[in-house]
Write a protein that binds this DNA or RNA. Structure first.
Lengths: 137, 137
DNA sequence: CTTGACCTTCCCATGATGGGAAGGCCTACA
DNA sequence: TGTAGGCCTTCCCATCATGGGAAGGTCAAG
């Protein structure tokens, strides 16, 4: 299987497959006489594993850890769970951060007329105008 | 005021102030005879505006738009609100995406023993083992 | 024999930020 | 007067994951 077909089969672009090889995430595949990379079902399986891990938001570094655990038959499930848990914590931290932004922005937007006039509490807030923090009740 | 003091006063690092100047987000400041950048209260105000916009998750490109609107006295608040609204939508999309990841990960973690044994539904899921999607009820 | 679809490597760009080197300037202190 | 250290300057490099594209080799079908 050439790289294009492996990309098709795994959902990982050819560009990324080469990159993963370059950074040592995956092993260099065999080459044909014309220097083309050749992949088998096993490598495609690994690529799909990576793809799935990435889609769950794991970094390539975390993905590498998970890949090694996957291939280590003497791993403990606790080790895997640790990786997952710290990733969950990271995601939840980022979610909370963004939710804070959304909350502020929605409040400001709500207070903004959104009309033809220039007066805008959103800009007032960005400009540090404390007036903007006052709720017009 | 030198760049270090402007950084201190605005909360934007000297490194970033120079970068914002380089990309045209802020105007090049005056220079002293020894080629040092000099900032006044106005420039610090702009930097604080940028800082605040960044803390609300606006990209530098969006921040530039907001800065221009801020400085344009004939702006409409609708124009500002549009920028804020599309940013809110973007944040909410990303939040939902991450929440989906968290949901899946929590489910898998819940199903994972987290003990000394190697059996792990998290890895099974990443490996595409459909068994892992089965809820053990 | 040509055309088009592959493949190869190499370089560059993204977005926002930090690190650090090499060198210039200024101030305080001995 | 010399020097130490704390600023400043520009320039280059690294991050993280991905894509774009050029220049050139290979292969299969027509």
């Amino acid at each position: 299987m050439n790289i294009g077909q492996a990309a098709e089969a795994s959902g990982v672009s050819a560009k990324m497959i080469r990159y993963y090889e370059e950074i040592g995430l995956i092993a260099p595949p065999a080459r044909t006489g014309n220097n083309y990379r050749v992949y088998g079902a096993d490598q495609v399986h690994v690529l799909r594993f990576i793809k799935r891990a990435r889609s769950l938001g794991f970094s390539l570094e975390e993905t590498e850890t998970l890949l090694k655990l996957w291939q280590d038959k003497s791993r403990t499930s606790a080790a895997v769970k640790d990786v997952a848990t710290s990733h969950i914590n990271d995601l939840e931290r980022r979610i909370a951060e963004m939710q804070g932004m959304v909350k502020t922005l929605k409040h400001l937007s709500h207070c903004c007329g959104g009309d033809h006039r220039p007066d805008c509490p959103i800009l007032d807030d960005l400009a540090g105008d404390s007036q903007a923090h006052t709720h017009n009740v």
